[in-house]
Design a protein around this nucleic acid. Sequence first.
DNA 1: CTGAAAGCGCTTACAG
DNA 2: CTGAAAGCGCTTACAG
Lengths: 347, 347
Amino acid sequence: MKVVTLKAVAEKAAVARSTATHVLGGRGDELGIRLETQERVRQAARELRYQPNYLARGLTGGATQTLGVIWSFAAYHPHMMMRRELAMRLHTRGYQPLMADSFNDKERVRRDLDEFRRRGVDGLIIRPSSDLAGDKGIVKEIDRWSRKVVVADEVSTPLMRQSWPAVVREVQPAMDELARHLAATGRRRPGVLISSLGGNQAKTAAFLAALESHGLPGSWDQVVSLEGLYEKSQDDHCQMFEEGIGRAGLDFRRFDALLCNCDEGAAMVLRACEQQGVRVPEDLALIGFNDSPFCKGLSPRLASIGWENAKTADLVMQLMFSQLEGKTVEGVRESVPLTFQWRESAG
Amino acid sequence: MKVVTLKAVAEKAAVARSTATHVLGGRGDELGIRLETQERVRQAARELRYQPNYLARGLTGGATQTLGVIWSFAAYHPHMMMRRELAMRLHTRGYQPLMADSFNDKERVRRDLDEFRRRGVDGLIIRPSSDLAGDKGIVKEIDRWSRKVVVADEVSTPLMRQSWPAVVREVQPAMDELARHLAATGRRRPGVLISSLGGNQAKTAAFLAALESHGLPGSWDQVVSLEGLYEKSQDDHCQMFEEGIGRAGLDFRRFDALLCNCDEGAAMVLRACEQQGVRVPEDLALIGFNDSPFCKGLSPRLASIGWENAKTADLVMQLMFSQLEGKTVEGVRESVPLTFQWRESAG
DNA sequence: CTGAAAGCGCTTACAG
DNA sequence: CTGAAAGCGCTTACAG
């Protein structure tokens, strides 16, 4: 259980500690260290099962194999899955993620960024809400990180101005697919049900635009917002929607197609329709959002919009590791289209 | 953006670095440092907004404000929620969690424990599968951690032998509640549907025992296992159960009450019942497991067994922070009963 | 091409 | 009670 240090490796290989560092850090060739010497060092490290101490490394400006992640990991399924996708990939590459659930709170984000720095984090992965992206102080803070990847759900202005490497998750393609499907299946009175406008504005706008481009009505009159119920039960979307639908006294005969901003909401609409004698999908095509695993557990199975988390995580890794390898990815912007997942409820 | 070090604080307070450390580390009184001096140091730290460098601290044997968590965070909702509950509480107290998703793989757990050590983690939170708990090497490894909390879903022998501080999540109380309810509502032919025996053995046994103690039949004949479908689609429990139910050609008229090992499974049973003309709950009382948020989105609403994640996380924190404050909690074992969540599907 | 030296920011014995 | 010194394990200039 004796801890093996670089010193031990150097001694075993009969070189100076600095030489050992250089070789193990992959700068052997660059510095022209004799190949035979390099091999000796690597051999020694292997035999002794040398594991660098990241604390010491971080303290001296080296890599800590730690990456900071700032994301608002609400209780929502897609965020939790995303978290997992990222964590798994980072672990596989020998990195530890420090994940801060910043709740889109500026003060917290600032503090977390600061803490990441003190902990010698090697790079930053952040999904700034449009709110954050609009804060000059935060933008400046993020800017100072030399290795970073930004994940954005909408291309907000402050992000566009920056040359930050980004993965943009595009909602429009999925909405187009959905609108095309609705038009093709003869729906005429599409609607949208959202828990609140904040956070759902962009997707709603995208859907309305898609509807119009497919010859269907697409005005904000068709949007019902249950505003104000969000704070009350952040983590229980089902209950939130149930209450909202009840209070608003919604009559689902008004629509023949309905997109909700989450699958839980759609599930509650399904229940309400049962009571109102509205048949899904015959009378109403119903579509959720997030493509939660339980969509397949409802009957009829719930159509939804999926996030492509795995693909997103892959691209984030690609952009981050390019930077960690010293490549520059300034201004690179990868996009991941969301996808429409057809299921029975969409008719 | 100048980094404020301990040195700066010491200089400002006109004391030696060691004195500053002692005071800020809370050992001022103990070492009999003059109160006035102490105040001067604290004042300086405050004014300069001193933030200790955890890397340096860890390197010299001090606390890194980092805690290692080993849990198998499958895609399952309760695990993801638990992760979040822990993370939030740790952040609140100024700790960063290092979370390793070890998939119950011994080699990975060993590696993660090792890495935690190299990173100067202050303590360990671990939920060992019964598999892990049975591995002597791992048990020894865990034993070496002076500050740890173990979370166990069943009191497996190796854990019992240890005096590790533990939070035990007890399934029996919930099963008793459930069995009592089934007996009281006149059910006579209860059954259990599980995806596989591994991992579900303890809860199944607990349920069968509870049934018998309430005068209902409780033998292993009533247990249907869809064995072998698990590997195929780890993350898609709905599909797994759908396939399993189909292949096994299950006829749900056989039972008048059914407990599933997850809510997704119960949801698929609900679908199958619809097709088979079995009414829930009239003909069949249906109960899921995990109390996923979407239980309320099904119709009828799905009864389930809930994990009490918040309470569990609270107890874990309590045990861990007692240790971090130097108290000894050897052999302390807190228990958290799971709870039966009645909803319409249980009749 | 290689090695001795300084230093990262802290903590812990150990003198006075 | 306080301070000067050594050391944690590494990396980075800087001599030779």
